[in-house]
Design a protein around this nucleic acid. Structure first.
Lengths: 221, 221
DNA sequence: CCGGATTGTGCCACTCAGTGGCATAAACCT
DNA sequence: AGGTTTATGCCACTGAGTGGCACAATCCGG
């Protein structure tokens, strides 16, 4: 429920909450490090909990699963995304463009202190760990379903109109492609570079539907 | 690896293979029934295996996970999809349109004998079981990644061009929306009705990118 | 600064998904 | 029929995830 990885409020929060946030942060950082060094399957929760000096019971009060802790960076981003979208009136201009703007805003709101590094580790792990990939996709699907439901409520759209949902799915597809290509690139894994990838992916969307592979000439090799 | 739920070859196959296929079919049918009646989490693998009179070890030689057995109908469809696509030359016309045709072909190739019913149960379960939803999305993502890689190989496309992948993701988004709305509709859960939903979702794709929610007039209620 | 109310944590035992190894039985092939 | 191949059953084991309860740390009113 709490933003967590955002170290936004180090003080002004009751001591208890700050401790919880610190524990959460420790768990995420240690998990990403251990999973990266020894593999996701090669690391048991008991080992992770021992390293952070926390009981397994506490781990499951903070995260819903072993996969969950390693997906924290992405979840933090989408949480901000949803918050920002709630503050807006998305009517009167193309929905997909609106969502693109909100996504870029949320991205810009991610903390400077290491969010990009954590995201990179998280994505690399997801690429090689089926259960993490599955967990991430489910989170994304659940979140976008919530967004669609919210939009229908706020804008009282025709429930039978498939376009709002398809619009979100288009945005999500572009986001995923941006994230994958950013993860795969050599170096320069900054937040701004990711934002550039997002813009490029969005720009490619209109042409994707009509994209036609050129017929090959006879002898090419 | 084997097509399985397709009862295409009842004979002409060695006895051993037929037995395996029968076991697989029994497992899928019984699993869908038990999961539907008692819930996914309310059914243990031991109970399922006892009902089919198969050892748990054998179950895991046929399916990779508890979720897997309940997703069999969808997987059978996409397996045919991939096979059909391999037999084609997708160059020279819009890729998305080509993929739409292949999807409708694969759909038409699904057996009459109850595929639609199994799919309906499977989707309803997935809608209420997070781990099944996650598993299904992961399968879908892995499959489409394979398709993209194959297309790049066969058509030697520019590896940096995001459009082929986005095109697939668009098709997948339309498919998912078609499947969800078909699942949610009242009655008439036939293969043909699903095909109609698929066509409708595809038709809505071009408008999704430019969809704009109408600005609300002041007093609506 | 101290009391009780509140809330987070540690420990323990438990269920159940998923895996590896090995013996056995069924189907295959002359 | 007889030897080979291949699937199945059984058993023990790891590790994720959960519920219950006692304990300790924080909070808050005096």
């Amino acid at each position: 429920m709490t933003p967590a990885a955002a170290p936004a409020a180090p003080s002004d929060l009751p001591l208890r909450e700050r401790k919880k946030l610190r524990t959460r942060r420790d768990l995420v950082d240690t998990a990403l490090r251990m999973f990266t060094e020894r593999g996701f399957d090669g690391t048991t929760l008991d080992e992770l909990c021992a390293a952070v000096e926390v009981s397994k019971r506490t781990f499951f009060r903070t995260f819903t699963s072993k996969e969950d802790v390693a997906m924290a960076p992405t979840q933090d981003l989408w949480q901000v995304f949803v918050e920002r979208l709630t503050d807006r009136d998305p009517a009167g201009r193309p929905l997909a463009a609106e969502l693109q703007d909100v996504l870029l805003e949320a991205l810009a709101a991610m903390p400077d202190d290491g969010w990009a590094e954590r995201t990179l580790l998280s994505r690399r792990l997801a690429a090689s760990t089926p259960s993490m990939d599955a967990h991430g996709l489910h989170f994304c699907n659940r979140t976008s379903a919530g967004i669609v439901a919210d939009l229908h409520r706020r804008l009282d759209l025709d429930p039978a109109d498939p376009r709002p949902r398809l619009a979100i799915d288009l945005v999500v597809a572009a986001w995923h492609h941006a994230l994958d290509s950013w993860t795969a690139q050599d170096g320069g894994h900054t937040r701004d570079a990711l934002a550039d990838r997002v813009r490029a992916a969005f720009a490619a969307l209109p042409g994707a539907l009509t994209f036609t592979a050129p017929a090959r000439v006879a002898a090419a090799d």
